[in-house]
């Protein structure tokens, strides 16, 4: 009887432990992962623009490392830093929301910058220009 009680207690403790772990599980970030693919911002955008659904299937939730010319980098209204890279022309962009606590890159617009992030998908727009969105990102390095 005592053994069964102990066993039940043990199982309950493990379940509580798993629950606690899941609840406090940190956000997945691109910082901890090797990129699934490395490419230029314009190559990424072209792929999405050519076949949105197939490319979404291919890259969704994957860490993607992209390089491109910086358009702007600034904190949004939630305090998360958004880095926007040119993708072919000024209209079309790749936007990476950096992970919580990241600092705003100080590079001037036009500088080539390399960023990785988790791919969320594509927002096509003929009027505004299309955008590929990544989040939980990190700046990899900056080259002149």
């Amino acid at each position: 009887m005592k053994k069964i009680l102990l066993l039940l207690l043990f199982v309950a403790a493990i379940a509580a432990g798993i629950g606690y772990y899941l609840w406090n599980k940190p956000h997945r970030t691109a910082a901890d992962e090797k990129p699934f693919v490395t490419l230029t911002s314009s190559a990424l955008l072209t792929e999405f623009a050519t076949n949105e659904s197939a490319t979404t299937e291919k890259y969704r939730d994957k860490v993607i490392q992209i390089s491109g010319a910086l358009i702007k980098a600034a904190a949004d209204s939630s305090g998360n830093v958004q880095v926007v890279l040119e993708a072919g022309d000024e209209m079309n962009t790749v936007s990476v929301t950096l992970m919580n606590g990241a600092t705003v890159p100080t590079e001037t617009p036009g500088t080539m910058i390399e960023v990785k992030g988790i791919c969320n998908g594509f927002l096509p727009d003929d009027l505004l220009g299309s955008e590929v969105l990544l989040n939980q990102g990190v700046v990899v390095n900056q080259t002149k």
Binding site: L22, W23, N80, T97, D125, L133
Partner: peptide, 16 residues
């Protein structure tokens, strides 16, 4: 207005 559902950021990763 257009947005990606995956773009919603939660305080808690599990909830997301």
């Amino acid at each position: 207005i257009a947005t990606l559902v995956k773009g919603f950021i939660f305080e808690n990763a599990f909830m997301g």
